[in-house]
Amino acid sequence: MLSYNKSIIPIIESSYEDLTNVEKMIADYFLNGVENDELSSKDVSKKLFVSEASLSRFAKKLGFSGYREFQFAYKQKLPSSKELDFLTKQVLNSYQKTLEKTYSLINNDQMIRVAMMLDEYERVYVYGIASSAVVAREFKLRFMRLGLDVDYLAEAHSIRMNVSRVNEKSLVIGISVSGRTWEVVEGLREAKKKGAKTIMMSAAKIYEYRSYYDELVLIGGLKNLAISDKISPQIPALIVVDILYAHYLHYNKATKEEKLKLTLEYINYEIEE
């Protein structure tokens, strides 16, 4: 089980740009990691050649009453087994493992290739059943904001009927954690027969179905993920969708950002500065 630390590091990082040059030097010192026996104001001021008053001003900039309170908070970044119970740690550990698996499995060249592919086809269809339907819907909502002509289908009958709309100008993406959701697999098979480009997003390599899709995008699955044993089964797929979205937004970025701005104006959404 991994340890999770409560830390004031994010507080320092979020305030960094508002600090003076001297305060930034102090911030860098703490961001690089300091042992408990090097935290006294006298030791820090001597080591950095700054006054103790500068340390106090630095602490107050971060929202503390003074350096002593900051010092106490900084010490709390050390692991504490009493802060979180077993169940909470278990869930967080599952998220951590999912991110680690995604990092290991993600193919950066493939993400760029698929992102460019999205603009090469007239229509994009996303298939997903049950929990994967959540991902399919999120895919549509996110990419539609950037002007992509995309639709999602989330039940067996609609996926089967959609074959009449699919042709060689279509890109069809199937999402299945197990890689065996037959409605999705069948949908990709039939789309492939119609000449469409097909992609499967899955946590498993099912070789018997490999001929049904042109690209296999692996997601960071965990044991019993499909039955929501610890975390929501759609989480690993959503992470990959976010990565793909980042690459798609970056590709022809000016055009995409203009479309996003137009979309947000239509729905009266104001981006926070």
Rank of each mutant, 00 (worst) to 15 (best):
S228P: 02
R68D: 14
V91L: 02
K253N: 12
Y16T: 08
V184A: 04
F70V: 03
S104D: 14
S80V: 09
R165L: 15
G174Q: 03
N32H: 09
L78N: 14
I173S: 15
F143P: 07
S132L: 01
S51Q: 11
G187R: 04
I267M: 05
V185L: 02
Y95H: 12
Y121C: 12
R165S: 15
F58V: 05
P79Q: 01
S14F: 05
S178W: 08
R160K: 14
Q96N: 11
V172D: 05
A154T: 14
G195R: 04
N268F: 00
S3R: 12
H250M: 01
L99H: 04
A53S: 12
S45K: 07
S94C: 13
L31I: 14
S202Y: 04
E100L: 06
L99F: 12
K75S: 13
S104F: 07
L19A: 13
K6S: 12
N5K: 12
K223D: 15
S178V: 11
Y212C: 03
L260T: 11
E155W: 01
H157G: 08
K223P: 13
N162E: 10
N252F: 01
A130D: 11
A196R: 00
L264G: 08
F70G: 01
F139P: 03
K253Q: 15
F30W: 05
D28N: 09
F86G: 10
N5I: 05
E13C: 04
S41T: 09
L92G: 10
L225F: 09
G220I: 08
L78K: 13
L141W: 11
K46D: 15
S7W: 00
A115C: 07
I12H: 03
V150C: 13
K24V: 10
N93P: 05
E69G: 06
F64V: 08
K61G: 09
